[in-house]
């Protein structure tokens, strides 16, 4: 069935003409909570931990690096190209592989390593969701494809809710091939280190 034929049958059913513009769609009311950073953090902690995630709040990049090393406990890990990981020195930790440019090499490495380290696009306090935007620096399999996922992010990423995310720049979703909102996973052990 050609698209044109379907669209024409819809126009006929609706009594519309080709190229006829619709009236302005009703505007959804975006409700952005006016929470302080501390309130956001507490709400995020409650929701994130309810989904089974573990939240670790640290005060410096050095502390974040130390905590990642403790979580790895000598095990190997794959790290994404998120700038915050380099800034914390996580990429220099023993056993951390990063800088992948070849899909096959990354796929093979993901078959043998159990821990992935990445950052995130934002965090939603109200729902405890982690927002991921998959890019060349943030491949899917490092964040979502391994049994243990360690996220390192600045607390600046903490938004109040989905409405705030959609209100910031709704067209930004088109800048990536996929955006995902994750509220915990039965498949993964998730640790979030918030700086």
């Amino acid at each position: 069935m050609a698209g044109d034929a379907l669209l024409e049958s819809l126009r006929l059913a609706l009594g519309r003409k080709k190229f006829q513009k619709p009236s302005t769609p009703p505007e959804p009311l975006l409700v952005v909570r006016n929470w302080t950073m501390e309130e956001r953090l507490e709400r995020f902690r409650a929701a994130f931990e309810e989904h089974g995630g573990a939240l670790h709040v640290v005060s410096s990049e050095q502390e974040a690096r130390t905590l990642v090393a403790e979580l790895l406990a000598g095990r190997e890990a794959l790290a994404s190209g998120a700038p915050v990981l380099a800034e914390c020195g996580v990429l220099g930790l023993a056993g951390v592989q990063s800088g992948f440019t070849d899909p096959e090499l990354l796929g093979n490495a993901a078959q043998t390593v159990r821990i992935g380290i990445s950052s995130c696009y934002s965090l939603l306090a109200e729902s405890g969701e982690v927002v991921l935007r998959f890019t060349p620096e943030e491949p899917r399999c490092i964040s979502m494809g391994l049994p243990i996922w360690v996220i390192v992010a600045s607390r600046r990423k903490l938004l109040a809710n989905l409405d705030e995310l959609l209100g910031l720049n709704p067209r930004s979703f088109e800048s990536s091939s996929e955006t995902a909102l994750i509220a915990g996973s039965e498949r993964q052990e998730i640790h979030l280190i918030l700086i």
Binding site: F100, T101, D102, P103, L106, G107, F134, T135, P136, P139, R140, C141, F173, E174, S176, S177, E178, T179, A180, L181, I182, A183, S185
Partner: peptide, 15 residues
């Protein structure tokens, strides 16, 4: 889990 797909993988994406 909620996902938004806006196309196939783009240039430089590894998966």
């Amino acid at each position: 889990t909620t996902r938004f797909l806006t196309g196939p993988r783009r240039a430089g994406e590894l998966d």
